[in-house]
């Protein structure tokens, strides 16, 4: 079972090693003369105003939370998809009930305006 994944480990090692080498190439080959003006974060040529990591809209949190809810549904979908032709009508009915509940939640989020982005 696990030896199916052994070749993946080979590719992972190769990509990781190459990526890390590439990360340090510029430091060795390129010039390196940092000045305080050069190291300032780019803000269209102006002196940066305040830190960059400030508050951001709550919408992004909301999308993340909704994603967690609905992604579990997708993860439920794939095993169902594998087993459907074996289990037949029973699996289809069970999944229908699940999807109906899920869609009620989706509709609720929609009505509540969680998906609006003004």
């Amino acid at each position: 079972m696990l030896d199916q994944f052994a070749p993946v480990a080979v590719l992972l090692v190769i990509t990781t090693v190459v990526a890390i080498i590439v990360l340090f190439i510029s430091r060795t080959l390129g010039p390196f003369q940092p000045t305080s003006r050069k190291l300032e974060p780019y803000e269209s040529g102006m002196v940066p105003i305040g830190p960059a990591r400030r508050r951001f809209p709550i919408k992004f949190y909301l999308i993340a939370v909704l994603f967690i809810l609905f992604d579990i549904e997708v993860m439920f979908f794939l095993p169902f998809a594998v087993a459907l032709r074996e289990l037949g009508l029973l699996a289809l009915l069970a999944m229908t009930v699940f999807i109906v509940f899920l869609e009620i939640g989706h509709y609720y989020a929609w009505r509540k305006g969680a998906l609006e982005w003004e």
């Binding site: 780019y42 960059a52 990591r53 951001f56 999308i63 994603f67 997708v74």
Partner: peptide, 30 residues
């Protein structure tokens, strides 16, 4: 990056990729 453009770009990218991953995973079930 400590850069406002980067921050906004990263946030936008994350929200966008999360949103479209749902339909992607569902369509892959076919």
């Amino acid at each position: 990056s400590n850069n406002k453009y980067s921050m906004l770009g990263g946030l936008r990218a994350s929200a966008q990729m999360l949103s479209y991953e749902l339909s992607m995973g569902t369509a892959m079930a076919v």
